[in-house]
């Protein structure tokens, strides 16, 4: 318990902004497109430092996506950033046709995903972006769990050719990795050891899962394993099976609708295996959010440490 309170709080959007600036110094092909959210998405420092490589399209996310594709055809590496509800929420068809079908080398960054647009309410809370993006061919989807992992995911997005979508949060969440942790697209990481139940998660909610697991493991030693999946697409089922190491009881955690999102993905993948798995999904349960603080929302919609703990304890009880 004391462990969690000591952890530093930082946002993954800040990691994006800082890393972008570092990469831009070395790579002059990087250009950035804004749809009037430069400050919130943390691309403003880039805009100030490299005004000749910065394009402001105004409140026009559809245009932003297709313009990005056109820029990529001239050898540029375009970065587009907005809130998840607007991009990919507003411009999904442009992402589908102009970017993914064209296999354009565009790097898409969504900030304010999950509940992190908190007080702005349901219109601004991006709880469906994994669902709509993971249905698209050609794109890779990264969903880092904290500040340091976000830095590495942003860097990785530029190391590969083709469309990449990176899911980021506005919220300052616990830093649970270190700058030394390795990162490879498609690779998972065991964050906490345990042998009976596996928490399989993506994004910043992994820190809540980790806290829940660590508290439970104190009372019931070696029970809950925590597996962090920063790559949603391409999904590495082999690495998941390896990370599960034979555990069949699974709880998926995501700050997203449980339908068609990350939990669904895990169910789909494991349903094709020979073994039988018992899976519970934690996330938004087919409803819209509302205004409130990030912590209040996570609590109300059972995506906080206590909510996750309850599900784990129920699973232990039903053993």
């Amino acid at each position: 318990m004391s462990k969690s309170t000591k952890r530093e709080l930082r946002s993954t959007r800040d990691a994006f902004g800082e890393t972008l600036l570092d990469l831009a110094k070395e790579n002059s092909k990087i250009v950035v497109i804004s749809a009037d959210l430069a400050e919130s998405t943390r691309i403003l420092p880039f805009a100030k430092k490299y005004p000749e490589r910065f394009i402001e399209v105004g409140v026009a996310e559809q245009n932003m996506a297709s313009v990005a594709a056109g820029l990529s055809f001239t050898g540029k590496i375009p970065v587009m950033a907005s809130f998840g509800v607007f991009s990919p929420g507003r411009n999904w068809d442009q992402i589908r046709v102009s970017i993914c079908y064209n296999d354009a080398n565009v790097k898409m960054f969504a900030t304010h995903t999950g509940l992190s647009a908190d007080r702005d309410g349901a219109t601004h809370q991006s709880l469906e972006d994994i669902a709509i993006m993971r249905a698209l061919p050609n794109v890779k989807i990264l969903s880092p769990c904290d500040f340091w992992e976000a830095k590495r995911a942003v860097k990785a997005a530029f190391e590969i050719e083709g469309p990449v979508y990176v899911r980021l949060s506005r919220a300052k969440t616990e830093v649970i990795t270190t700058p030394q942790h390795s990162f490879k697209i498609g690779k998972m990481r065991i964050m906490e050891k345990g042998e009976k139940i596996a928490l399989v998660g993506t994004g910043t909610i992994v820190s809540d899962g980790l806290n829940a697991a660590q508290e439970i493991n104190k009372k019931h030693p070696n029970t809950v394993r925590v597996i962090n999946c920063p790559t949603i697409k391409p999904f590495n089922i082999k690495d998941l099976l390896k990370s599960l190491g034979g555990i069949r009881k699974i709880i998926t955690i995501e700050e997203h609708q449980i339908d068609a999102g990350f939990g669904s993905l895990i169910c789909e993948m494991l349903s094709e295996e020979r073994e039988k798995y018992l899976i519970s999904r934690v996330g938004m349960n087919n409803e819209f959010g509302e205004s409130g603080s990030f912590e209040e929302l996570k609590k109300k919609y059972r995506m906080d440490k206590e909510g996750i703990k309850k599900i784990i304890l129920d699973k232990i009880k039903n053993e």
Partner: peptide, 12 residues
């Protein structure tokens, strides 16, 4: 979409 793609290329 094509006109936006063209604008992107012209910018590039």
């Amino acid at each position: 979409q094509g006109i936006s793609v063209a604008v992107g290329t012209a910018l590039g």
